[in-house]
Design a protein around this nucleic acid. Structure first.
Lengths: 243, 243
DNA sequence: GGGGAGAGATGCCGC
DNA sequence: GCGGCATTTCTCCCC
C-alpha cells in the first residue's frame, strides 16, 4: 500500500481526479460531528478539492468536504492516513485506510452545465404566459420577482381588478406553502393598506391539512399540472429499448 | 473500449461496485428532465444499483438514479451505451460514453451507519434538561413530539404558568422558522381555547426580517448556543497535525 | 405510503 | 456575504 502514497500525491498535485476503493474509518468534525466505523467505501477527490465518501448503499455520500479543502496523505503502521481540511468552513475529515482495493486517477475536463427542465420557475412562466389557466380575465403583472412585498411567484389582478397573489408548487403544496402565501398576502395588505387581496396556490395537488388551513385563511387552490415534459423517448430510438 | 463491456457486465452481475472515468453525454428523464453535453465524468454504480455521475467540480452529483435501478450496457459505433432505469420511480438515464479513461470494480462490504452529533434534536434535549437556559422557572412538559397541536420542539409552562411553545433552530432562525412557531401557537390557542400562549424561538441567531416579524407577532427570541461539540481534536494526536 | 420537519442540507440568485 | 427560496432535495419519524 505504501507504494501508492507517492502516486496518489502526484495525482493530487496535478489536480487529477482520484478514486480510491478502500476499507477505512472516517471521522468528521465541522458543522456537526460524525464517526464511521471500519468498512469498504469509495473515496473520490476532485480537481476542485472536493472530497466525497460513498458507502456501497444509498444515494448520498456518507461524508464529504466541500470544494477547496486541503488533503494530506501519509503512511504509518501499515495504514494510509488521509487528513483533509476545509479551513474556510472549519471542517475536518480524517480517513484511516487499512486496505486499498484499488486506486485510479485521471485528468477530467468538463465545463458543461446541466440543462434542467420541469422546474417551478417554468411553471410560473407558464402561468404568466397563459393567465387563463388561473381563470378567465386574470391579468398577471409580475413573476418570480423580488417585489417590495417579498419574493412572489406570480401576482396580478383578476377580472374584477382584485389584487391576486399566486404561489406555485411543482409537486404537492403543503402547510409550508400556505404559510408562504399567507405571509405574502399579509405583506401586500399591510403595505398597500387594502383588505381585498386574493391568494391562490397553483399546484398539481395539495395535502389535506394544507387545504384545510388554506380555506380557513380564505385562500384558494387551483389544480395546475406543471409544464409537460418533453416526449419521454423518441420512438426512433428502438435500439435503446432492448432490455 | 469494447473489451471492457464484458468485464463491466460481469462486475455488475456480481454486485460489485463499479467506477468509470469516462467522456460522456448524459440524458435524464424522471421527476425532471436534464441534458448534459459531452465532458469527462466519474460514473459510480453501487451494489444496490444506485447510479451516480460526478463532474470534476462541485459537491453534488450532476445526475443520479436512486437505488434499485437496472443497468444495461452495449457497444456500438465505437461508443459504450449505459442505459439505466429505475422502473419504480419511472426515472431513466442514458449515458453515451465516447472514451473510457479508466474502469475499476471491487466488492464492497460495509454495514456501518454513521453516528452524527450536534443536531437540532440534541438542542431541544438540552433545553428540556436545562430549562433555566430558557428562563428562570420554565417547566418543560414535552419535547420533539408529535402533539395534537403538531410537531413541537419543546413546550411547557413559564413561571406564571403561561403555556409556552419553543421552536429550536440549530443555526440561524429565518422567516420560515417564525411561520412555524406562529402556526403552532395558533393551533394551540384554537385547540385549547385560550389566548395567552407565549412563543419563543431558541437559536444562536436570527435574521433581521425574521426578528421583525417575530416581534410583530408578539413572540420572543432567545439566543441559545447549540450543544457544544466534542473536543475538537485529541491533543495526543500530534501526528495528525503535521500539515 | 403520505405528511410534516430537519439536514453537516445544497445551490441559486439578489441585494 | 447574508437572506430568502427551490430542490430530480434526502432522510427520518409517525400516523
Amino acid at each position: 500500500m505504501e507504494k501508492y502514497v507517492s502516486q496518489i500525491e502526484e495525482a493530487l498535485s496535478k489536480n487529477h481526479s482520484v478514486v480510491l476503493g478502500a476499507r477505512c474509518k472516517v471521522r468528521f468534525n465541522g458543522r456537526a460531528e460524525s464517526n464511521l466505523a471500519k468498512g469498504d467505501r469509495i473515496i473520490l477527490i476532485k480537481p476542485d478539492k472536493t472530497l466525497i465518501v460513498h458507502q456501497p448503499q444509498g444515494n448520498n455520500p456518507v461524508n464529504y468536504l466541500k470544494p477547496g479543502a486541503n488533503h494530506g496523505l501519509y503512511y504509518e503502521d501499515e495504514k494510509l492516513f488521509l487528513k483533509s481540511r476545509n479551513l474556510q468552513l472549519k471542517e475536518y475529515m480524517d480517513i484511516e485506510i487499512t486496505r486499498l482495493h484499488f486506486f485510479n486517477s485521471c485528468p477530467l475536463d468538463d465545463a458543461c452545465t446541466v440543462v434542467v427542465s420541469g422546474t417551478e420557475k417554468q411553471m410560473s412562466d407558464m402561468l404568466y404566459d397563459n393567465p387563463e389557466m388561473i381563470e378567465e380575465g386574470f391579468k398577471p403583472v409580475s413573476r418570480e420577482e423580488q417585489t417590495k412585498f417579498g419574493f412572489i411567484d406570480v401576482f396580478g389582478y383578476d377580472k374584477n381588478n382584485v389584487l391576486t397573489i399566486i404561489e406555485c408548487k411543482r409537486f404537492s403544496a403543503n402547510l409550508n406553502s400556505v404559510d408562504q402565501l399567507r405571509r405574502y398576502v399579509e405583506k401586500v395588505k399591510t403595505s398597500k393598506g387594502i383588505s381585498g387581496v386574493r391568494g391562490i396556490i397553483a399546484a398539481p395537488k395539495i395535502t389535506a391539512n394544507a387545504l384545510k388551513m388554506l380555506e380557513e385563511w380564505g385562500f384558494e387552490f387551483k389544480s395546475i399540472k406543471p409544464p409537460k415534459y418533453m416526449e419521454r423517448y423518441d420512438k426512433k430510438q428502438k435500439k435503446l429499448d432492448f432490455f
